[in-house]
Write a protein that binds this DNA or RNA. Structure first.
Lengths: 183, 183
DNA sequence: TAATCCATGTAACGGGTTACATGATTGC
DNA sequence: GCAATCATGTAACCCGTTACATGGATTA
């Protein structure tokens, strides 16, 4: 049982999902390819943490829909009380910034501009996700969600993503402003 | 030549370092253990990207001090113009937050409080790093560093770290404020 | 008609962590 | 006396990415 396994169980605590769906939904929290997820789901099913149901579809390929079992729910609860690993950020750009004084100014500008665009796009993505979330949940528009609401965690995380992307956008703009002007 | 290799070359573009030193200094940008770094340095030396010098010490074990070669500097410049990979964040806490509504309130509070302490500590660490940087460099206290200064990149990155830790601290406080009060 | 989405899987490889191994010095 | 720091290395293992493999439906 590694972190990704618990991540999949976490998603299945919300509702049942296909492997493909789980793969898409776990990306913001724990990037993983389908080739890693499908075998893991098979193992979790063998270990009785999740159960499968084959769903045939007309216009789309058939799919396997996974659901959390009692044993899976117990494992999740135990995991929650275990110490949590520190976050690990790996960003090639930070390494490039470190030796930026040796790079061509045009390269540095492009790199930072690309990253700025990335974070602005991400911010927009998570802001529409927040609107979507508010529509799905039934907490008052002006009021705050309650910690017992199943979508409470998603609400917190979406805000976290928006805040992080805003800060990173701000940093990119500031860094760009320190570079020499074009031509 | 993977990303970690270029990261090591980036650090060596600043000044020469021992393997142990490089291991410590690369942590904020690209977490890696000594067991990954020592063999990589041997490969980089074989490939003529870096050169070694054995330095004997009295009160400490002997060390190998690595320096960037001309070939290494060229490789760094080529790398800078290659497209930069998107940042990858893996954070077990985010997975736990996702299914937080199913956890004991005390567990959730502890997890967020621990993370809050982590980010506050990190912020302090990088703030003293910034003071240290300003002392080492010779840019005016009130003025801004120039992009051509060798420590320009480190200055940008230290600010980035401070900004990120501040935002994360703020998020932890906000999340904690939404949880039910402790009796 | 080419690309993208949905949907699942395996195999090979490279990246990263844990454990094994050694050993002197310094501070509590 | 015990833990931490400095300093280097190897071996085994697990995690994660890339590539191989298939195939229908939709969309540009």
């Amino acid at each position: 049982m590694n972190t990704l396994s618990y991540g999949l169980l976490s998603l299945l605590a919300q509702s049942s999902f296909s492997g493909y769906d789980l793969m898409l939904r776990i990306q913001p929290f724990w990037p993983a390819k389908h080739s890693q997820i499908y075998p893991l789901l098979a193992k979790l099913e063998q270990g009785d943490y999740i159960s499968v149901e084959l769903v045939t579809q007309r216009d789309k390929p058939d799919k396997k829909v996974y659901s959390l079992t009692g044993k899976g729910r117990d494992a999740l609860k135990d995991w929650f009380d275990q110490p949590t690993a520190d976050p690990a950020l790996r960003d090639e750009m930070m390494l490039k910034v470190f030796c930026m004084s040796y790079a061509k100014p045009a390269s540095a500008r492009k790199m930072l501009a690309d990253r700025l665009a990335f974070h602005e796009e991400q911010r927009k993505k998570y802001e529409s996700k927040l609107v979507e979330l508010k529509a799905r949940a039934d907490w008052p528009a002006a009021g705050l969600p309650k910690p017992s609401h199943p979508l409470f965690g998603a609400y917190l995380l979406t805000h976290k993503a928006i805040m992080s992307n805003e800060t990173n956008t701000e940093w990119c703009r500031w860094a760009l402003s320190l570079l020499p002007a074009e031509d």
